[in-house]
Design a protein around this nucleic acid. Structure first.
Length: 766
RNA sequence: GGGCGAUUAGCUCAGUUGGCCAGAGCGCUACAUUGACGUUGUAGAGGCCGCAGGUUCGAGCCCUGCAUCGCCCACCA
């Protein structure tokens, strides 16, 4: 075993990391099939599977991604070393709205063009080009972090396989009555000209003026006078003593913005008697609360504001004006008509904003596609515990049940409550978007009558329904019929929701070409889906628990009738040194690539993981990364010392050890047990710290120091014993440190003359 | 309005189900260091573990109340 000349120089991550990653990739060990072939695990070994939360193809990766990659790679390497059949699937997300608006922005900046100037086809080409470029950068960054993902199974939320999955999912859910098209109040973004889901709406506090208006005998209040034109219902609480003389349904003539109107009194418990005068008028078309009231009482709905944010004919002389411009004019008119009683300044309230880089939300009633979360359906062959075959249930019930029953564990536990709270408030999920980039809704319409093709006796009327939901473009074999595909696209989370199983080949073939289902419809035991689903762990940021985690549970529960994962490990946000959110615009963002260049990926990984438990935000400064760069150096030097001074010092049997060596051995075993337990229980933040501490302050500071005199001045017997135990401790430490600091440990392993990769060594169990 | 969480050394934070002198990194002080470690070692200063009660043989950890900060959710017009 010749000591490498590499040890003559200090460790240089820049020179080694890329090379090591290449060696790993070529070894094939990232792919469980090859691990089985090479004997690292067997076909029967327990599986450990995890999907990489696919980064958005909106640009480069940030430290949040680094954190995710670090934690997941630790999980994966640990389990692989333990002999589990370990699969980590990489991929990217097309991130519909986010990517489209980014490209739109750039297009306008660079060429002063809008997407309409290019047209749908050409614009989409541009978006795909952008996505492609972003994709290759992302792949490069994932490798830089050392992530041991199986590239042979890489997926993209918008590729062919996933498109089939999306269309199949849509079709099944439509046929099961869980997807419907309907008119409902939705979150409309006039700026991006699309709807967004409830979860994408962000509430921002705003200070504004608050107006008290005279509405016949009543006094009402509003922050948005421009919506008040159509208000012809005046609502109060049925128990409000002040208004007992007004009866539900009573008509009242009154003077309003554009002349006299007839208002109707409505009594509804939604009104807060304590607030203001306890009376309000409603605008059902543009307010979801009002919409609810109007629906309960079967009232009329009238659109006041169009989809560009301009007033409609209801506004009389103000029609055609943008609401922003109209407001002061309307106020002026209110004043002239003596309808404005008083104005409160500095009124603080929350307004809705599109969190996906869009504008202010204007609720509108629109025909859209929805997922019905309360629709009852019957389970066909459930593997979900507690909800069996033939049981009637709803998505909402399942969502809650799988977590409550402990089938899915959320770490840290406190997020289970957050999850329940979300499920309880869940409304039907609006899945259609009016943007171009994304999965086109797999619904085709046709207007023409079905005409039998020439030479055919009859048309295939079954396929000539007015609406066809299909996994692919419908073709009518016996008739001429023109089909038009729905122009809307799907919410990006619809495809992300399928991720745990669409990446494993559902519904057709997996990445190795093996069919997921046999001809008789049963699961093919050779397929990835059979072998790796449900996945073992889902690791992601707590900020997307609703967007993604919940949606995956929903999709998997309905389409596969099983849970998508057993444990959810949630990490926190990466904040700057001062505890502020990192963002490019604030200029406090740290670029992971710069840190890797400066300190090495290992140092960055350790800095992100040590001391940061699940769910906690991490506030990261360069100093911390630097500290672990020092540790890497320590590792390197201690290893050099040990390997250089213990060559050819081997021991026949461990029992020959002396008292001191035995004590060291036992301490090591305790550390091994402790670390293994921490690793099994997702306490990487503790395991990392303990390893750091053990290696530096026990092994290097004490054990090596105490070993020196024996090694230099002892007799042959002593030298052998000392040499053996030092090497043993070092190698064991390297194995345990490998998941945390894969590059440097692998490099030391290599430099010490080992032939096999450290990556493929067995975890040092006790 | 509802919910969740935080408060530990100058700074950023750990402290796993309550158990010996409360820890890490950075910073600070003194000394040492030509042989694994220009990126080291040894020693040290620095903590009413937010405040007030309670449970316990024992509380940073459990319970109650208060204060401050933060986050999430929500149809007060």
């Amino acid at each position: 075993m010749a000591l490498s000349e590499k040890f003559l120089k200090p460790y240089n991550p820049k020179e080694t990391e890329d090379e090591i990653y290449k060696i790993w990739e070529e070894s094939g060990f990232f792919n469980p099939d090859i691990c089985v072939k090479k004997g690292l695990c067997s076909k029967q070994s327990e599986a450990f599977s995890i999907v990489l939360p696919p980064p958005n193809v909106t640009g480069v990766l940030h430290l949040g991604h680094s954190l995710m990659l670090a934690i997941e790679d630790i999980m994966v390497r640990f389990n692989r070393m333990r002999g589990k059949r370990t699969l980590w699937i990489p991929g990217t997300d097309h991130a519909a709205i986010a990517t489209q608006s980014k490209v739109e922005e750039e297009l306008y900046k660079k060429e002063k063009k809008t997407k309409h100037d290019l047209g749908r086809k050409e614009f989409l080409k541009r978006v795909e080009e952008f996505a492609q470029e972003s994709h290759s950068q992302i792949v490069g960054q994932i490798k830089k972090m050392g992530a041991s993902v199986d590239w042979s199974r890489e997926a993209y939320t918008l590729d062919k396989e996933r498109e089939l999955a999306v269309n199949t999912a849509f079709k099944k859910m439509y046929e099961g009555g869980l997807i419907y098209q309907g008119k409902n109040i939705v979150n409309w973004d006039p700026k991006l000209q699309t709807t967004v889901s409830d979860d994408e709406v962000e509430r921002v506090e705003e200070e504004t003026e608050f107006y008290y208006l005279k509405y016949g005998p009543f006094e009402i209040a509003t922050a948005r006078p421009e919506t008040k034109f159509g208000d012809k219902y005046v609502v109060m609480h049925p128990d409000d003593k002040r208004y007992l003389k007004y009866k539900h349904g009573q008509k009242i003539e009154l003077e309003w913005l554009n002349g006299n109107i007839t208002a109707t009194v409505i009594k509804d418990k939604a009104v807060d008697m304590e607030f203001g005068t306890g009376v309000m008028t409603i605008t059902p078309w543009h307010d979801s609360a009002d919409f609810g009231i109007a629906k309960r009482h079967n009232l009329e709905f009238e659109q006041i504001i169009d989809f560009d944010g301009k007033l409609l004919s209801e506004a009389g002389v103000f029609a055609g004006l943008h609401i922003k411009k109209a407001r002061p004019l309307i106020l002026q008119k209110l004043q002239e008509k003596k309808l404005l009683i008083k104005t409160d300044k500095n009124y603080r309230h929350f307004v809705a904003k599109n969190s996906r880089g869009g504008g202010m939300i204007e609720p509108q009633i629109m025909k859209q596609w929805f997922v019905d979360v309360n629709k009852e359906f019957e389970m066909r062959g459930s593997s979900i515990k507690g909800i069996g075959k033939g049981d009637k249930t709803t998505l909402k019930i399942i969502l809650k049940h799988v977590v409550e029953s402990g089938q899915i564990k959320i770490l840290p536990e406190k997020f289970e409550k957050v999850y329940y709270n979300w499920v309880d408030n869940l409304h039907d999920w609006n899945i259609s978007r009016q943007i171009w980039f994304g999965h086109r809704i797999p619904v085709w319409y046709h207007e023409s009558k079905c005409i039998p093709k020439k030479g055919k006796e009859t048309a295939d009327f079954a396929k000539c329904k007015n609406v066809i939901v299909s996994a692919g473009e419908p073709v009518c074999e016996n008739c001429d019929a023109k089909y038009f595909q729905d122009t809307d696209t799907l919410d990006t989370w619809f495809s992300s929701g399928l991720w745990t199983f669409s990446t494993l080949g559902w519904p057709l073939d997996d990445a190795r070409g093996k069919p997921v289902y046999k001809k008789d419809g049963s699961l093919n035991p050779e397929s990835d889906l059979a072998n790796y689903h449900p996945t073992t762990v889902l690791e992601t940021g707590y900020d997307i628990i609703f967007f993604w985690v919940a949606r995956m549970i929903l999709m998997s529960a309905y389409l596969l009738e099983e849970i998508p994962f057993k444990t959810v490990y949630l990490h926190g946000l990466v904040l700057d040194k001062k505890g502020k959110k990192m963002s490019k615009s604030k200029g406090n963002a740290i670029d992971p690539l710069v840190m890797i260049d400066k300190f090495g990926a290992d140092a960055l990984r350790m800095a992100m993981v040590v001391g940061v438990g699940p769910g906690n935000d991490i506030s990261l400064g360069e100093e911390k990364i630097k500290a672990y760069k020092h540790f890497a150096n320590k590792l390197w030097n201690a290893s050099r010392f040990v390997f250089a001074n213990t060559e050819n010092l081997e021991l026949e049997e461990k029992s020959e050890l002396g008292e001191k060596e035995n004590a060291w051995f036992e301490t090591l075993e305790e550390v091994q047990k402790d670390i293994t337990l921490d690793m099994e229980n997702f306490r990487y933040y503790l395991a990392g710290e303990k390893l750091y501490h053990y290696f530096w302050h026990t092994f290097a500071d004490i054990i090596i120091e105490e070993a020196k005199p024996k090694l230099f001045d002892g007799n042959d017997e002593e030298k052998k014993k000392t040499g053996w135990i030092l090497k043993h401790i070092l190698k064991t430490s390297l194995k345990m440190l490998h998941p945390f600091m894969p590059f440097i440990t692998e490099e030391i392993w290599r430099a010490s003359g080992e032939k096999d990769l450290l990556l493929s060594q067995k975890w040092p169990e006790v």
